[in-house]
């Protein structure tokens, strides 16, 4: 399933979607970026509450398919701008991480 299809089926909010055709291979949830760096696999959707710019570096280096910011956390405009520049899909969920993952699991 592509990120665009995932958005259609889950109702996640799109902040930017510059690479909507990226296939989603699964989901990885986490907030400790080094932990994510060591464990997440290519093309997984990255579920987190972190909104600092390093989230994008981790996503780019691992070729993750998208970042999903949970709990309607406030997303700094520079993060959105930078995601667009780097070609990273940035989505937002109103639900906490667990419920977001459950929702993702029901469509993947």
């Amino acid at each position: 399933m592509t990120v665009r299809e995932l958005v259609d089926r889950t109702g996640l909010t799109v902040l930017v979607l510059p690479d909507g055709d990226h296939e989603v291979s699964g989901v990885y949830a986490g907030d400790l970026l080094s932990w994510v760096m060591g464990r997440a696999k290519e093309s997984q959707a990255f579920v987190t509450i972190m909104t600092n710019i390093n989230v994008l570096a981790v996503t780019a280096l691992l070729d993750l398919s998208c970042v999903i910011i949970c709990e309607d956390a406030e997303v700094p405009p520079e993060l959105i701008r930078s995601a667009e520049e780097k070609g990273i899909n940035l989505l937002r969920s109103d639900a906490p991480e667990y419920e977001t993952c459950v929702r993702l699991s029901s469509v993947l």
Partner: peptide, 15 residues
């Protein structure tokens, strides 16, 4: 608070 300091940096580099 920025998501680092988990004590995974050097182990990840080795991994």
């Amino acid at each position: 608070s920025l998501g680092f300091g988990a004590g995974m940096g050097l182990p990840n580099m080795k991994r």
